[in-house]
């Protein structure tokens, strides 16, 4: 080790033997254990056991795809999937639209920007349980929004998502968007701030209107931001659980069930483990389906580990 430190290139100190860099390896043991035992091991374990007939206790007697056949013929699962699809689609479109619109409005060099941003973002600090319970109360058919509007004189007004199995998922959607759109607004705002001021100047010189500039120039430029937001929204959608438990607990009947809830009820309440494993494997599959194209888009271009 001589004193010409600064000119040494970075990868020169890559160790070769097992005992080189020992402290770093010891320090990484928690990470290695988490990655291998919990993430890889746990997931594999669940997937393998989804092909068994485990009920109260996990056991390895394989029954092929029986659990999956049963899963896809259970009305409760089909309703869960349908709900998740409706919630997911609406939530993606609305959250992206609201998030971007709010960010664009806040980016118009307005006063009280910080105040508005604080207001839009605070629900994100709250838990889904708190969110669900607050909206459960607001949407209460006897005392909540519906009654208030009727008292104002619109007697026939009807909006009781928590009692109406046809629209209950939209009641949850309202709460979900309330909680999560602030985050997307923040990410979009950061994206908008990263856009060169010259773009705006050029657009103005060319006489392109503000709205048109957003649609034709800014949004295409913000593609990576949109993709990040989409991935965030999508991974949140699949995790949807606490909100439903707090707001409706799956009701009325089973009309607002979601996959994550199905999994937990079968694993920890109905004591039908393998059925829960099969359902969670389906959730995993859907994540993989979303994740692979994204990873391809994100990492396909540049080489990164």
């Amino acid at each position: 080790m001589s004193d010409h430190v600064s000119e040494q290139s970075a990868p020169a100190k890559r160790p070769v033997q097992l005992f080189r860099n020992m402290s770093a390896k010891i320090a990484s043991i928690p990470m290695i254990l988490t990655a291998l035992v919990v993430f890889v091991g746990g997931t594999t374990w669940t997937v393998v056991h989804s092909f068994t007939s485990s009920r109260l206790l996990p056991k390895l007697d394989f029954v092929g795809l029986d659990q999956y056949e049963r899963l896809w013929s259970t009305p409760r699962w089909l309703i869960s999937i349908e709900n998740l699809a409706i919630y997911g689609l609406c939530s993606m479109i609305l959250t992206l639209t609201i998030g971007f619109t709010l960010a664009a409005l806040l980016d118009r060099k307005i006063r009280f920007e910080n105040t508005f941003r604080t207001i839009f973002l605070y629900p994100f600090a709250l838990s889904f349980v708190v969110t669900g319970l607050a909206w459960q109360w607001i949407l209460n058919p006897d005392f909540g929004l519906q009654q208030v509007v009727r008292d104002w004189g619109w007697e026939s007004f009807a909006f009781d998502p928590l009692n109406n199995s046809k629209i209950v998922i939209f009641g949850i959607l309202i709460a979900g968007i309330w909680q999560g759109s602030g985050l997307i607004m923040c990410i979009m705002l950061a994206g908008l701030r990263g856009i060169d001021e010259d773009i705006w100047k050029a657009a103005r010189v060319d006489g392109i209107g503000t709205v048109k500039t957003y649609l034709r120039v800014i949004i295409p430029m913000m593609r990576p931001v949109f993709i990040t937001s989409l991935v965030l929204i999508a991974s949140g959608i699949i995790k949807l659980y606490d909100l439903v438990v707090a707001q409706t607990n799956g009701g009325p009947g089973i009309s607002s069930e979601v996959p994550a809830k199905y999994v937990i009820e079968y694993m920890f309440r109905a004591q039908n483990l393998a059925q829960g494993f099969a359902a969670s494997t389906m959730m995993l599959v859907s994540v993989v389906v979303i994740l692979i194209p994204w990873a391809y888009l994100e990492f396909g271009g540049r080489k990164r580990g």
Binding site: V38, F39, G41, G42, T43, W45, T46, V47, H49, P58, S235, I238, K239, A260, V263, I264, M267, L273, G276, F277, A279, S280, T281, M283, L284, V287, L291
Partner: peptide
């Protein structure tokens, strides 16, 4: 990104 549900029981 793995749903927690697949790791809960292990």
């Amino acid at each position: 990104f793995i749903p927690y549900q697949t790791m809960l029981y292990p």
